[in-house]
Structures are given as structure tokens and as C-alpha cells.
Design a protein around this nucleic acid. Structure first.
Lengths: 352, 352
DNA sequence: GTTAGCACAGAAGAAAGAAGAGTGCTAATG
DNA sequence: CATTAGCACTCTTCTTTCTTCTGTGCTAAC
């Protein structure tokens, strides 16, 4: 248990350290403290906080820096998000006000905006695709050997892929197959399309003498559409931590971040969190040691969910140094997710 | 004019320096020199070479490093490309042996392979699009408000874009317009599609009461298809020069490199070079000061053209530090461009 | 419980010295 | 006359030492 004054001191130290990135001394704390106490008193309290594992020293006679536990305590009990300044507000609104053609374009832009504003690495994933339904599957012949397979879903997203068919497949045959596939798939949600259903379609196709290769195309685009796409931006900002890390480490981090799957598991919906509280309202913070990879030791990950009504929930995230200014970043994320949700609702509204 | 021995010394210094990145002393040169001379003689010769501006010192009593002019002389007169080792050969062949669906996929992979092999930043542009002809333009309705415009060219590349049409446009109307556009465009080369032709199509469309908005879509995809796409990979490797440059400089470089247009002008076909010699056979090297941006002062750009028979010429390029091991890199590029050309010819062959 | 005062620890920076690599010059040599 | 051995000199780099400064912990007084 901490006394009120101890909490105040911890908070002051964290606020100062996340701004200056220098160990904070008792005198500095004294000056920033709203209560009037001497530096000696502050020193005594700091010793207590260190005893409890919330503060650390870089050497025996240095100022204090927060420990992981210190950050944790701060984040769980003391933080109050800072309201973002008007200039930032304007930039967000301005940058989201573009003629987007697809949901994913908006999500991608969201990651870009976030990383631009924060100078950290930003992530954005679109609303969950669980309930998204297929509105149509097309195969368009492009040339004698090439076709394009297109899958359209009711959230306005479009996935397409180009294929080279081995032997000259009959145009009518393709059309017949596509019609059959549409009969089976339109209106079905992406998550409900499983192997059983695909097998049934395959049987149908074979029964009617259609080319079963088409099923491969179908499977590919469905897989593409169903996989939660995570957009990343601002990888370059990982460099700001270059002093701590060496080049090989930064390169490994880049690779880690470019693997979509590694990330999704990192950021993706954590079922536990989901249950603990109706989380979508809180920005979650994971600190270095709480993250799955050793590479992320000195980093910290903020994730926030945004809710687009019946279109499901999406996630935005920020990866920055452990000593980032949390109150500002959380304030930004809380604000930003609402704007993003608004924009997406607005977008979906056009299809009504 | 340099004597044979001076050339030998210059070459030795450059070979050594591009390996170790340390100034080279007279004793080191002596040991590596095939002729037997004393270090004092080497020192005398080095003084001459410095006099001529081909060598430099980092301080009054250090070993020598090549000057830009020194590199230039080496590249123009002394270099002999090194044959690449079998392991590299195998990696190239292996990585190019994938089921690509489009020319651009191959080109993109080429950039990736090059940067992987060299640990530098690599660029690749596909064969020139000047002579590429339109084989078809499609508009596929996706949903009540969305359409996809597709442009197919006879090199097997496909460009597509999604649009949200403002008011519900009639399906038949679209088909009519598309048919008309195809009548005008199929068989035309991309470079021949100019404003005059587009204006004529617009007039036709209006005359027949078709929606002129479709022209916008058409223009967009044509612009997309006609612009020479340059693929970049290995930007992260710019970091290796981090010691010299500071973070802001690296960030600026990133931005520079991500601008397609800035790059194209950097790397794109230089008409002069084109005339000077039937260049396509030589790897061109541009050294720091010869490059258009101050940011690239300590870098050097190798460009090589590859020829895919009647399908035109493409370009691959490498951006690395000025002190890179040129003979190896040029050897690699010379080899790689042939493999790439082979692969592309192979690909085109499938459409015969 | 709080505070002033003071001795002490460690970092950071400046100054000074030592070692090493490499040069340029001179004088000797075939 | 080109080549070479020899040597003084220059500059970098690495240590070492000294100084300054920030900030702590402890003690004693309020």
C-alpha cells in the first residue's frame, strides 16, 4: 500500500522521466510536487518506493527511474489520460477526410496517421471479419490463359487474385462453376465457410463436370479475405531506440514486425482480456517483460479496441519505448479510436 | 597517365579498403602487391597518386583511402568483376523458381533477392512499357455502388482499381461504354494513349449518352499501368551507414527512396548513357557526388539494364556505401540480370 | 514526522601521458 | 636514377589521472 504522497512522488517521477529520459533526483521532484516538502523528505519516500520495487537507480548515487513494476502501478492506478491538443485533433480529422474506396484503405491510413503523430510504430486492424458475409464471387477472363478471381464481401472489401490457368478452360464452363459457387456462398459469413462446405461445392462441381481447379482460386481468395489483415506503419521509428539496441537487433525486430502472424498473436484479441472487463473501453498497456519476445524488452505496446457497432470491433496499437509519455499516448489513442470508428461507420453508411 | 605499378597500387588500395573500410598503409599494400618493392617505394607512388587526386588521407599521417576520382579511375579502367560463388548462384536460381502470376511479381522478387544477397538497398523495374499494348479493359460490377476497373496488357500485367460510383449507374450502360472503349483501345500501345485519344473516346461516350464518369476510371488505371513501377527492397540496410549519418538523415533517405518519381529519375534510363555505348551490356556506377541528392553523398548507385528481347529492357540497381566491394557487386549484377531476363523470357513464353 | 547539513559514491568530462601506425624526407646503394 | 633503409615527426587511440557535479544516505536537530 502506498500513501497518497508516495503515489504523488511516483507519478511525478514517471511524468518527468518519460519527458526527459533522465534519472530524476529528489530536488527535481520537490520542485514539481504540489505539496511543500523538503528534498530530504522526498529522498526518504523515494527510498521506500525503491524498497517496494517501484523505482530503480542506474548507479548508487543517481536519481531514480521507474521499474517495470513502477510503470505498472502508475498505469493501473495513477494515470490520467491527457486531452490532445487542437492541432493534433485537426490533423487527425484532416487526414481521415479522404475519398477512401475500401475499408482497408481507411485502416491502413489509420496506421499511418498514428505513426506520424507519435513517431512510434503503429498498427491497425480492421473490424473483425467473423460476421462479414460474401456478396459475390467472380471470375473474369483476362486473356487466353489468365483469369482474375474476385471476392466481394458485404463490408465493401474486395479481394482479388490473378491466376494462370494451365490449359485453356472453356468460358462457359467457368461461368457455370461461378454461378454454382455463388449459389452456395452468397450470404454465408466468411467464418462459416469451412472444409465441409468447400468439399460439398467441389462435389457439385465434379458432378456437373466443371473444372475443379476453380476451387483452388476460390480457396485462395477466401483465405485472403478471412485472414485478419494487420497494417503497420512507422517501422523506421524503431530506430529511435537505436542507442540501446544494436543493428542486428533492430533488423530482427523489423522481421518480427513484418510477419503478420507474429503480430496478430501479439496484438490480436486476447480472450482473457475480453472477459475480464468489457475491455473495449480501456487502452491496454503491455510492458517489455510482459511481451512475448525478448527483442521487445525495452519496448511497450499500447492496444486499443474500437467498436464499429454491428460491424464488429477492430484494434489499433502503438509500439514505442518503455519510457514513452503514457498519459499523452493513451489520450491520443482514446481519441483516435473514436474518430476511426466514426469514419468507418460513416463509410459503411454509404452502402445502406 | 598512370604507370602500370601505380595502377596496381591504386587497385590494391581500393580492394583492401572496400573490404576492411580502414585506411590502407604502405606496408599493407606492399604485402598484397604481386611485385616485390619496398614500402618506401610504395609510399613514393602513393604520394604521386595523391598528387593526382586519386587518393586521400584522413589525417596527415594516416594510410590512404580512395577519393571519388580514385574510385572513378578504378571503375573505368581497372576493375574486373568477380565471378559469384556457387552458393549465391544456387540461391538466385532457387528464389527465382516460384510460381509467379505476373511480371511485376517477378520484378518485385528480384529486388528482394538482390537486397538479401548484398545487404544493400535494391531496386528493380520491369521491362519498359512503351511498346506494351492494351488487350482489354473491363468494368466488373461488385455491389450496387462499387465497380472494379481492370486493364490488361499484352505483357500479362493487370492493373485494377475499385471505385464507388455516386449514383446507381445502369449495368447495360456500363457495358456499352466498356465495349466502346475496348473498340478504341485494344491493340494500342500504352504510350500512344494520349489526351487526344481520350478526348475522342469521351466525345463518343457523350454522343451515345453513356456515363462520362467511366472515363475517369479508365484514365486512372491507364496512368497506373503506364507509370514505370520501381520496386524497392532492403531499405533497412541503409542503416549500415548509420555511423556516418544521423537519424534525421536516414529518415530523409527513406522518404526519398519511397518516392517513386524521385527514384525513377535517379535510376531510370539516362538517354545519354543510352547513346554513348550500346550500354545495356555495362553496369553503370554513379558515385556520391555524381548523384542528384546531397543525402546520397556517401552512397553509390550501381545500375544494370537487362534485355528481354522484344519485350524491352528493364533495370536493376543497388544503392550502397561508396566503399562497397565493387568487383563483387558488379559481378553479381551482371550475373543476376541475365538470370532475371531468362526468367522473364520464360514467363512470356507461356503466352505464346 | 520533517528537515538541514555533510560525507560519500559514481558519472562525465578534461587533461596528460604512452603506445602505435604510418608518413615524408634524407642519404646510401646497385 | 629508381629504389630502399633509417629515422624524426605527426596524429590517433587508448589509458590514466584529476576535477567537477549531481544526487544519495545518514545523522542530528527541530
Amino acid at each position: 500500500m502506498l500513501t497518497e504522497r508516495q503515489e504523488l512522488i511516483l507519478k511525478t517521477i514517471i511524468m518527468d522521466f518519460t519527458q526527459t529520459h533522465e534519472p530524476v533526483g529528489s530536488k527535481t521532484v520537490m520542485n514539481q510536487l504540489p505539496v511543500k516538502v523538503s528534498s530530504a523528505t522526498v529522498r526518504n519516500e523515494m527510498a521506500v518506493l525503491e524498497e517496494k520495487g517501484l523505482l530503480e537507480k542506474t548507479h548508487s548515487s543517481s536519481g531514480r527511474i521507474p521499474s517495470t513494476a513502477g510503470y505498472r502501478y502508475y498505469l493501473d492506478h495513477l494515470i490520467n489520460p491527457v486531452k490532445i491538443p487542437a492541432s493534433v485533433y485537426n490533423r487527425i480529422v484532416y487526414q481521415l477526410d479522404q475519398p477512401f474506396q475500401q475499408v482497408n484503405e481507411i485502416v491502413q491510413e489509420a496506421a499511418k496517421i498514428l505513426s506520424d503523430l507519435t513517431n512510434y510504430t503503429a498498427f491497425a486492424a480492421g473490424p473483425e471479419t467473423h460476421s462479414v458475409k460474401v456478396t459475390g464471387f467472380r471470375i473474369v477472363p483476362l486473356s487466353s490463359h489468365q483469369v482474375m478471381a474476385i471476392l466481394v464481401t458485404d463490408d465493401g472489401n474486395v479481394k482479388n487474385q490473378i491466376y494462370t490457368l494451365p490449359h485453356h478452360t472453356n468460358g462457359e464452363e467457368i461461368e457455370k462453376a461461378v454461378r454454382l459457387i455463388n449459389d452456395q456462398l452468397v450470404g454465408k459469413s466468411l467464418s462459416s465457410i469451412n472444409e465441409v462446405l468447400l468439399k460439398r461445392i467441389a462435389d457439385h462441381l465434379i458432378a456437373r463436370g466443371s473444372a475443379p481447379e476453380i476451387l483452388d482460386l476460390l480457396q485462395d481468395v477466401i483465405k485472403d479475405a478471412a485472414s485478419e489483415q494487420m497494417y503497420v506503419d512507422g517501422q523506421i521509428n524503431l530506430l529511435s531506440n537505436y542507442e540501446n539496441d544494436d543493428l542486428t537487433k533492430i533488423k530482427s525486430l523489423y522481421k518480427l514486425i513484418d510477419q503478420n502472424d507474429a503480430l496478430s498473436s501479439l496484438i490480436g484479441f486476447n480472450p482473457e482480456d475480453e472477459l475480464k472487463n468489457d475491455s473495449s473501453s480501456k487502452v491496454q498497456v503491455k510492458l517489455g517483460s510482459e511481451l512475448p519476445s525478448d527483442l521487445l524488452e525495452n519496448y511497450s505496446l499500447l492496444t486499443a479496441q474500437y467498436s464499429v457497432g454491428k460491424y464488429g470491433k477492430g484494434t489499433i496499437a502503438l509500439l514505442g519505448p518503455t519510457n514513452m509519455p503514457y498519459s499523452q499516448m493513451i489520450g491520443l489513442l482514446e481519441y483516435f479510436r473514436n474518430e476511426l470508428a466514426k469514419k468507418l461507420l460513416d463509410y459503411y453508411g454509404r452502402f445502406k
